[in-house]
């Protein structure tokens, strides 16, 4: 793709997300879509992290743990220490990144299904910890989290206090898609810079990568920390949107879904997790009408898609371009 086509694509995307979608929602009056799309945007951020760990050759089913951690960190900081929501976003991200360094050091040595299993267990351990540790308030969770306050710079209000808004859901939508755009822009830059190539070398052959001087332990940790940072930010934003967090806010199912989002969108494409999250989220909700068959149909379609499109939905465009 040429640079102009890329810019045009970006412009259309931004226009769609920031102008067209809100306009459509206003026209159709389906305000409930704001909440759905906010969720999709935030979940896609966590999925982008998982995608990055795939990129270094690790099947990461631990993102639920970091999303939950991020949500609690933000909730505790806001409710107990009165920190502004805006600061809790980076704080939760950093907390999760640091935690992932400690956790990653021993477990990132594992490969394939071993890493996948341990990371899955990590999600469950985090949930159990949230139940047990006093500061997270057990099963009743943390509720009544205040809405985000205003952001002012030099006395000018850039973002008004969410609680003064008529419909904070719209504000949350803008917040979520802004975070999503930032996360994916950073990811795009990362993958298309030399770092991406080094990550790719790790994915394809760790031994060879270390023979050319790549510190594979170091690089794996960096990738895992970035992934967990995104998980934490996503969780923190979720806590603010729902104004609550429970041990069951992010579970093993979510961890698996983050991974499926990446598979579905395409592991070879930076924007794969975004498309995957959107498709899965809406697909699952559409199937709601099928009642008890929801899970069966959903699973069958997933298996079929993986067989027919092993490189994800975005590989459809690739084939057309080649053909």
């Amino acid at each position: 793709m040429t640079a102009t086509r890329k810019l045009a694509g970006l412009a259309i995307f931004l226009l769609a997300v920031f102008v067209l979608v809100p306009a459509l929602i206003a026209a159709t009056g389906r305000k409930d879509l704001y909440y759905t799309l906010t969720s999709v945007a935030l979940l896609s951020i966590a999925s982008a992290g998982v995608w990055l760990t795939f990129y270094i050759g690790r099947i990461n089913m631990g993102q639920g743990a970091f999303a939950l951690m991020g949500a609690y960190v933000a909730a505790v900081l806001v409710t107990r220490y009165g920190m502004s929501f805006w600061w809790t976003l980076p704080a939760a991200g950093l907390f999760c990144a640091l935690a992932s360094l400690l956790i990653g050091l021993p477990i990132l040595r594992l490969r394939g299904v071993y890493f996948a299993m341990v990371s899955l267990v990590l999600t469950e351990v985090t949930r159990l910890l949230a139940l047990a540790v006093p500061i997270t308030e057990g099963a009743k969770g943390i509720t009544n989290i205040p809405l985000p306050g205003a952001i002012s710079l030099f006395g000018i209000t850039l973002v008004p206090d969410f609680s003064t808004m008529e419909n904070p859901r719209i504000a949350f939508y803008y917040l979520a898609v802004t975070l999503m755009v930032i996360a994916f822009a950073a990811m795009y830059r990362l993958v298309n810079s030399r770092i991406g190539h080094i990550c790719m070398s790790l994915q394809q052959n760790e031994e060879l990568a270390s023979s050319i001087g790549v510190n594979i332990v170091h690089l794996r940790l960096i990738a895992f920390a970035i992934s967990s940072f995104l998980g934490g930010v996503s969780g923190a934003a979720f806590a603010a949107v729902t104004q609550s967090v429970y041990p069951s806010s992010f579970t093993v199912t979510d961890s698996v879904n983050f991974m499926l989002n990446c598979f579905l969108g395409g592991l070879g494409y930076v924007f794969g997790p975004m498309l995957g999250t959107l498709t899965l989220y809406f697909g699952w909700n559409l199937l709601f009408q099928t009642g008890e068959f929801q899970l069966l149909i959903y699973s069958s379609v997933m298996i079929l898609l993986m067989l027919v499109l092993p490189n994800g939905l975005l590989s459809l465009g690739e084939g057309r371009r080649k053909g």
């Binding site: 190539h197 790719m200 070398s201 394809q204 052959n205 031994e207 060879l208």
Partner: peptide, 9 residues
């Protein structure tokens, strides 16, 4: 010893 390269690059 084996032909070890980055296959997909």
């Amino acid at each position: 010893q084996e032909t070890t390269i980055f296959r997909n690059m």
